[in-house]
Each structure stands twice: as C-alpha cells, then as structure tokens.
Amino acid sequence: MTNYNTLYTVTVFSENRVGIIHKLSIIYTRRKINIETISASPSSIKGVSKITVTAYCSKDDIIKIVQQIENIIEVLKAFYYTDDEIVYQEIALYKVPTIKLLEEPNLESIIRKHNARILEITHEYTIVEKTGHYDETEALFYEFNKYGIRQFARSGRVAVTRSPLEYVTMYLDNEEKNRRPTEIWNSRE
C-alpha cells in the first residue's frame, strides 16, 4: 500500500503572514519527509500567498499532510496533485564563461534545441535562462557543464491545475457568506 515513490505537488493558499513556511515545513519534518522543492509568491488573490511544495511520499501521507496543513489557521486551502494533474515549470539560470561559449561551434543549435534564451552577455560571462521540467533544465546543465558553469540556480516548481475551476476563489466566496457583520479586524487580512 505504501508507495514512497510518488512525487506529490502540494499547493497551499495562505494569508501572507510571518511563519507560515515554518508551520508548513514542520508538518513534513515530523514525518521525516524531505521537501524536494518549495516556492512561495503572491497569488492572484490580493493578500494571499501561493506556496508550492513537492515531496516524495505515499498517498496516505500526503492526504494527512494536506489536512494538517489546512489546520494552520492562516491557510485558506491546500491541495495535492500528481504530475499528470498539473502543468508545472521550473526556471534555471546558468552562468558560463563567454569565452568558452564563443569557442562552441554549435552554440546556436544548443540554445535552440533547449529552447533557452540569453539574458546577459559580458566579456566575462553569459547568463542563459531556461524554463522547463527538472530533467530538461538538468539536460542543459550537462550540456554547459563542459564549459565550466560558474553559477547555477534553479527555482522550485510552480504549477497550475488542469481543472477548469479555481477552487480557492470558490472557497473564499463561500466563506464570505459566513462572515458576520460586526467583524472589523479583517481589514488587516
């Protein structure tokens, strides 16, 4: 029953407050589950952050993790997905010595093949950007590695679902109906 080899992507919609990532990460840590990637940024809803976390674990684990994440007071909603349910990307930046690139006869075809683009060129170095899945950014890494990569950075995963509906917005609309009129503190949300 337990299968630890599934990579689950969890997306969390939360009020943008201090300490949420800590509360979230201890839920994984308690179960000794390693977080592979994590990324956080403002969502499409004002004041609400979207946090995307990936980790290998069992289905049983991920169900319980998501419920415990939802127990964090500031969390509006959390969801889990397998890779086939979402469209996702990572972004990678590569800094390579310009002089080495200039020696490469197939530079153009490499850039084309990997669908990468060049962000900045100086005498010293060139910065190339590529977005894609992990194995795709990894493939370009191997390609460039022979010139000696000076710096490399890869983001955590960001993802959107294939579902036509945005559940969080529905959730918020629903919650608003429960709001009682005397509350004034919410202006701080």
């Binding site: 939360s14 005397t182 509350e183 004034i184």
Partner: peptide
C-alpha cells in the same frame, strides 16, 4: 471588538 470571523 471581539473576533467572530476569520476567513481562513
């Protein structure tokens, strides 16, 4: 004012 609603 007491709190009686938290949207999350």
């Amino acid at each position: 004012r007491q709190c009686n609603y938290i949207r999350s």
